[in-house]
Each structure stands twice: as structure tokens, then as C-alpha cells.
């Protein structure tokens, strides 16, 4: 099945991706995020907070936003 996946870590692109039926939020996280824990991200499914065991549905819109993003200052 297809979902819209938005990774706000890095360039913040959105992609339609293919995932297996029954995939949970946590399984998607492990597959798409190289390092870190789900606790370090704001995870939203269809703009709503989601639990790690939530099973994704076709057409879902999933976004991962890291809770720590470094700003800058002087160059």
C-alpha cells in the first residue's frame, strides 16, 4: 500500500512510499530513520499524534519531526 511520508529531518521532502500491509508507526520509523529513537521525534499520522503501535492505512500522511533541531547564529 502507498502512504505519503514526510521526513522533516534534513531537507524535509515528502514522498509517496510503498509499505507492507500492517506496518506500524514504529516499524516505519525503524525503516526510514537511520538513528535515534521515536521518542526524539514528533510523529504525526494525518496531522494527529500517533502511538508507536498504530497500524498505518493506505493513503495515510505520516510525518516525523525531530525534537532537537540546531539553529545557528554568527558565521
Amino acid at each position: 500500500m502507498k502512504i505519503l511520508f514526510i521526513n522533516n529531518d534534513g531537507a524535509g521532502f515528502a514522498d509517496h512510499i510503498e509499505i507492507a500491509d500492517g506496518t506500524t508507526v514504529e516499524q516505519l520509523f525503524r525503516k526510514r530513520v537511520n538513528q535515534g529513537s521515536p521518542a526524539d521525534y514528533l510523529i504525526r499520522v494525518n496531522r494527529q499524534p500517533a502511538s508507536s503501535d498504530q497500524v498505518l492505512q493506505p493513503g495515510d500522511r505520516v510525518s516525523f519531526t525531530p525534537t532537537k533541531i540546531e539553529g545557528a547564529g554568527r558565521i
Binding site: 514526510i6 524535509g12 514528533l42 510525518s63 519531526t65 532537537k68 533541531i69 539553529g71 545557528a72 554568527r74
Partner: peptide, 19 residues
């Protein structure tokens, strides 16, 4: 939502290397 949340997370993070 992502736009405002990203700014919010930057405000919650301290980058000691370049403030």
C-alpha cells in the same frame, strides 16, 4: 503545522557551537 513545529523545535534546542 510542520512549519511552526520545526521553528518550535529549533527554539527548544541550543547549539553551543554557533549562537
Amino acid at each position: 503545522t510542520d512549519f511552526f513545529q520545526i521553528i518550535n523545535q529549533v527554539l527548544h534546542t541550543y547549539n553551543s557551537g554557533s549562537p
